[in-house]
Each structure stands twice: as C-alpha cells, then as structure tokens.
Design a binder for these strands. Structure first.
Lengths: 342, 342
DNA sequence: TTGTATGCGTTATCAA
DNA sequence: TTGATAACGCATACAA
C-alpha cells in the first residue's frame, strides 16, 4: 500500500512550460544559455509543480555528485563537531555538499558507512585516522574515490593526511606533568587496537616517562569506550591502585570530565589530591569545574584545510598532500604540582 | 583533469561471471532465487572487481531508497544527539538508513536541507518543531514525502508529531521555582520567532507566573543564539538589571552551563545568590558544577518511537499518528530557595 | 536559442 | 532458474 503520487519530473515541467526537457535542464544548470522569456516560463512551471530534481538521476547522468562524505567515530559529543563544521563551511564555499556518517568507534560499521557513502556517489571521503583494513583501501581505490585522512599526521604514511602528531601532542603534555613532579601516572584511553590516535597518545606518555628517567611500564593504562560514565568508572578503578596515581591522563575531554565528576563524588580534591588531564580542548573543557588542563587541537583549521584540499583536488586535480598542524598543552586548573609526601 | 577510472558496474560483473545483469541483480537482492553454483560465481566476481551497487541508479529503478532524512538545528552539542541515535537504531532494525543534516537554527538552511534530502530520495523526513513556511510543507506534499515532527507535541496541529508539550514542561518547572520563593525571574531564550519550542517555553513560564499571582510582564527575557558563550553573555546582562533576577531560566542546558560559568567568573554564588535552570537534561547537566536543575526530556524514547512510526508507515502503510510524551523537572543543585532579604 | 536522441546503472516484467 | 528488455529522471553532444 503506497499512496505516494509520483513527484513531478523534468518532463512534466517541460510539458507544462511548452519546451523540451533539455531547455528545462539548461534553465537549471546554465540559466544564461536560455532566453529570458523561456526561462521565466520554465521557472514558473517549476514553481507551480513543486519540481525538484532527482539527485540519483542527476548523479547518474552527470557522473558526479559534488558531494563529499565525512565519517567520524561519534556525533554523541562535540569532539568532532567543530572540525566538521569548518570542513562543511569550506566545502560549501566551493560548491560541495557534505554527507556525515558516524561509526560508534566500530570498524565494521565504518566499513559499512564507507561503502554506503561511496554507493551514494560521494566524490571523495574524509576519514579519521589511518588504521583500517587494507581491503577497504583497495575498495576505495577500485572505486576511484580519493580519501583524505584527518586527526592524524603521519610522515611515514603514503596516504595524505591533514592533522597533527598525536604522539608528540601527548608527549609535550606529559613532559609538563612530569615537570610538576608527578611520577605515578595513569591513562584512561580509548581502545588502542585499530586506533592509531589512541596508540600514539599512549606512546607519547611512555616516551615522556622514558625521557624523564621513569619506567614506562609503570603507567597504569585502562582502556574503555568513550563516554562520561566510562571515564568515571575507569577513574574509580584507578583510585584503588597502590600506589595511587597522582596524575590521570585521559584520551579525550569527555573521559576527563567523567573522571572529574567521579573525583568530586569520591571527595578526592582536584588538583590537590590528583591531577586530571584531558585531550582535544572542546568547549566542555572550559566549562568543567575546575577548568580542565588539556591538549589543544586546531579543530577548525584542520577542518578548513581538509575541505580546501579536497575541493581543490576534485575541481582542479591538485594532488592531495599531507599537512602537519601543531597542538599545544593548555594548563588550566586540574593540574598542580604533586603534593609533597603523597 | 580527472583520472577516475570508472567504477565496476553490474554489467561488468555479469560479464566476468558469464551471466546476465538480471542474475547479478537477483543475486544481490533475492539470493535464494538463484542457483547456488551461479551465486558463487557471481559473488566471487563481485569480490574480485570490488563492485558496489550505484545508489542513484538503484533508487531510480526501485523508486525507493530505504533512507529516512533527519534534520536537526545543530550537531554542535549533544542536545539532539541522543534522540537521533535512538532514532537511527530503531530505523536500522527495520532496514532503513538515516541521513542527517543540520541547519544552525536557520530556516533558510533548513529549507535547503529539506530539498536536498528529498532530492536524494529520502522516503520520509523527521523534522524538529512544527513552525515553518507553509510553502515547504506544500512542497513535501507534492513530492509525496511523509513528515514526522518531533521535540514537540501539539494537539492543535493536524501534522503528526512525537514529542512533548514544551509549554507544560517549562510551566511545571517554573511552578517549582516559584514555590521556592522566587519572584524575580529571567529567561535566556533562543529566538522565539519561527521557533515554536522557544515560544512555548516562554509562555510556560508566563503561565506559571500568572497562576502564582505574579505579573508575567515582569519576566526579563533575553533572546540569543544557542551556545555556551552566548549563555554567558546573556547572564552578564541579566545581572545588571534592577531588581536583579534571583532565578534564571535557560532555553537549554548549553545556555545554562554558559550562565553557570559566568556566574563563577563574576563570583556570584549558585544557588545561594542566584538559581539557574536548564532544559533538556543532557549529560552536560550532571557534569556541570554545581549539577544543573533542568527539565528532563525523554530523548531516547522520542527517537525510538519516531523511528518506529516512520518505518511502520513506510513498510505497512500504518498512518502516522501523534504521540505525547512526558517530561519532568529534575531538581539538582543550582536551584535553592530565594535568599531572605535579597 | 532550442530540440532530439542517447546513455548513465539499476530493477522488474515477461519470456524462455 | 535464467535472460532480454523496458523503464527510471536527468545531462549532454549534436543538430536545427
């Protein structure tokens, strides 16, 4: 049972306006190639019928969609929102439309989304991080869909990326933390398997520890899924360890805010009893109480540059090349020197 | 310059497998209508070529996409995220895919997105709030695209909606606030023009005031765009008014958190000096410090029900009908009785 | 400036 | 169980 009346087509419009379908098509795509009089007739017919071009047919005939797909791990929090917004704004400037999909951090869903966006005719794809099944890269290759990676910069990789060095970003922060006298460190991380950002951040802390003469194996690392509740739960476990960590790194600001909340519930003073460090510097970090020490990531610039690169590539054939952006530790109130005698 | 090698088509697969295109198509859509032997041949050809069906062509031939569009005001914060997630999960259960778009709270962008999703073949649309240009409803009508409204329940409207009564929701909260002795009330709102939720919430406060014998005109209302920074700025202005408000309602939790932050910066104690009340009860509300008093909205149930209704409508022709859900005031720590003598 | 005719990659109908 | 073939709605090369 389907009562849908078929939507008006180009042909319907052409009949109503008393012209050919070609003319209607031109009216829409190259308005100045058609006489003003005809154009007016056509436009009012379009208006009258409530005509709207069929995207599928258009894509098929034109063999491009001016659509770029972006696949992010989650829309649940603001982590990717700002970068994506900048990306979209930039694309819009160049006449491209963005299509978003999210994966809940699950590789198999990401694969599904990649295939879905490609099937929908995405002219290119923006993906987060390098690490995924080689098979899917081969698929994208045979489909002829260019891919730009973001949130990561890896000089080793042949694939173009616009991002930052996650290891260095976290290492710089860890060095500061160690300078504050902390030696009992912990890390609430996303699952590191199949997540190059999480792995790099973990290594960053380890490298800083080694550089400071600490033993990187002493880092207590808990892997969990991203979420406020999860951050809180992980913090709970960490506080039971002996010796108790005096500084807790978090894989992102959302986890850190969860840890912060649990600390409050446990009457553990931050930063007096324990320091908490986030990553990303989303708005949440400044709103948290106390304001969160975190690693600032150039969300907007990353999005903007990625958008520009892809648009330029599709329109002018400019090769995609990697761009490295910087991050910086932002010291707010959740980090303090380690308490003497603690 | 375009080096894109054309992607493999159904025809390519059929040649490689030595069968007709019809057989390949059946293999994909009705696998048990084809002999196991042929199926294996076809599947391995598909694998080999990295074939992926073209969505546009498929949509055109099948005259449906199994895609449902959802258009929300913003992805910048978590306000719509949870409901959307539930919506998507429910759709997935029924074999539908969700396409999201956001509008930055701008009607003209919403219109653009509606047209874009319809052009992309969305079988139905989920929209937030009733209020929009009648023209666009007419357009959807002629396109034969069913629409379900959410985040709102309006018994008056003929259009189906799955949501709650924004006026009553806010009124219930305002009654509590007034019971705490507050008489100097203020409201940091989204723009009420062309936003039935904002308008209803404003009216809800007014109704509660009237019921309590207050003058609804005494409500200080500031309209602003949604954002933490904007909430902070509006709070600033409110604190300069005489008499100074003792309770500040906010159109959503994001604004409320901004107000909370500014209060801290101004050394205005919450809730001792001023009470702050949010709306939505997103995760942020519990993480805020002090935890935010707010109106709880049944995000997930709303999304789930909306998804179910649309899927059921498209698959079985079940008419869309309105569902009213409840909200409830959640009293946390940002609301306290008015200070005597203040 | 406008019209004609063809092809884009599927699905679905009808025959075989 | 399989194969031809006609739509589907649009863009575009070519002709007028």
């Amino acid at each position: 049972m389907n009562l849908k009346r078929p939507a008006p087509t180009l042909h319907d419009v052409s009949v109503a306006a008393g012209v050919s379908t070609a003319t209607v098509s031109r009216c829409l795509n190259f308005p100045d190639q058609v006489a003003k009089l005809t154009r007016d007739k056509v436009l009012s017919a379009i208006q009258l019928l409530g005509y709207s071009p069929n995207f599928g047919a258009k894509a098929m005939a034109a063999r491009r969609t001016n659509t770029i797909g972006a696949i992010i791990p989650t829309m649940e929090n603001a982590i990717f929102a700002r970068g994506l917004e900048a990306f979209q704004e930039e694309l819009r400037l160049h006449g491209f439309t963005m299509l978003v999909a999210s994966t809940s951090y699950r590789p198999e869903i990401e694969e599904e989304q990649i295939r879905s966006l490609v099937a929908r005719g995405a002219d290119a794809l923006l993906l987060i991080g390098h690490e995924r099944d080689p098979e899917i890269y081969r698929f994208l290759e045979t489909q002829g869909v260019p891919v730009l990676i973001t949130w990561v910069f890896d000089a080793e990789s042949t694939r173009p990326s616009v991002g930052f060095d996650n290891r260095v970003a976290m290492m710089e922060m860890a060095i500061k933390v160690i300078e504050f006298g902390h030696t009992e460190l912990a890390f609430i991380s996303a699952a590191t398997a199949r997540n190059d950002r999480a792995t790099a951040r973990l290594n960053g802390i380890g490298d800083a520890m080694i550089a400071a003469g600490l033993n990187a194996d002493d880092l207590h690392c808990i892997e969990t899924t991203y979420g406020i509740e999860e951050g809180a739960a992980a913090f709970d476990k960490l506080m039971l360890k002996t010796p108790r960590p005096t500084a807790v790194f978090c894989g992102n600001d959302v986890l850190a805010v969860g840890a912060l909340r649990r600390a409050r519930e446990l009457k553990i003073a931050v930063p007096q009893d324990v320091s908490i460090i986030g990553f990303d510097d989303i708005e949440l970090a400044q709103v948290a109480y106390p304001p969160l020490t975190t690693v600032h990531v150039p969300h907007r610039e990353m999005g903007r540059r990625a958008g520009h690169a892809l648009a330029d590539h599709l329109k002018n054939g400019t090769p995609l090349k990697s761009v490295q952006l910087g991050t910086r530790p932002v010291l707010r109130e959740t980090l303090a020197p380690v308490k003497v005698g603690s």
